[in-house]
């Protein structure tokens, strides 16, 4: 016969641990932040796949499509692509500097990356202004413009988020947060920035050149 419930005192009778306690970490053998950013980047890949895939399908389905060189300033955007690739390289140089413990060089390279990223955003905003105000190229006009604004707009939003994130990391670094041993936060921001660069490489080819 079981004991009545009144005699059960959880403060005394309940076991402290309901699971085995190990002296090692049972999580994945990678840094949690790094694991999280890769899961996030996986979702971002699917997001841009939806946009780019839909663009390809719509374009394949259209019986004719305007030559992008006749509608867009390809050479200006090619220069902008160059700027974004340079910013990716400076991010790698900055990460290498902090991993060697050289904080001054890190601040210099990282600041350059922020500058290049901001320049990219500025050029894209100028392009939008020229298209919308000067050429009256609105998204409602036709499929070319609607897909153009959706894809470059979402990418531009990601670039702005990346610049803000890198700026926050830069401020934290100047306050002494990061060192040769503690630099995961920098690596995460860098991974996001490289991803934004990678997406742009594909978008530039698909939207501006093809």
């Amino acid at each position: 016969m079981s004991q009545p419930l009144a005699s059960y005192d959880p403060a005394v009778d309940a076991p402290v641990h309901h699971h085995p306690v190990y002296d090692y970490d049972s999580g994945p053998p990678v840094d949690r932040g790094k694991f999280a950013i890769w899961v996030f980047l996986g979702t971002e890949i699917m997001f841009f796949t939806a946009l780019i895939g839909t663009y390809i399908i719509l374009r394949m389905g259209a019986s004719e499509w305007p030559n992008p060189a006749h509608r867009l300033a390809v050479m200006i955007t090619a220069g902008n692509t160059f700027i974004l690739i340079v910013s990716s390289a400076t991010v790698v140089a900055a990460l290498n500097a902090i991993q060697r413990g050289d904080r001054q060089k890190f601040i210099k390279w990282w600041g350059l990356s922020i500058l290049f990223g901001s320049f990219f955003v500025a050029v894209q905003m100028y392009e939008y202004w020229a298209l919308l105000v000067q050429h009256e190229a609105y998204p409602k006009n036709d499929l070319f413009w609607s897909t153009f604004y959706v894809m470059t707009g979402f990418h531009g939003f990601h670039v702005i988020v990346g610049v803000i994130w890198m700026f926050c990391v830069w401020i934290a670094a100047m306050r002494g947060k990061y060192s040769a041993k503690n630099n995961v936060g920098i690596e995460l921001a860098g991974l996001y920035w490289h991803f934004v660069d990678l997406v742009w490489v594909l978008l530039f080819t698909l939207v501006y050149l093809m």
């Binding site: 996986g42 399908i57 389905g61 259209a62 305007p66």
Partner: peptide
């Protein structure tokens, strides 16, 4: 893991929009 999902996405979408004659006209 996203690679097979991308291929699946394209395969599923193509017969609908890409080859539907109702959508088969010019961009403008």
């Amino acid at each position: 893991f996203t690679v097979p999902l991308i291929i699946y996405f394209m395969i599923m979408l193509t017969p609908d929009t890409g080859t539907n004659p109702q959508f088969n006209y010019g961009v403008a």
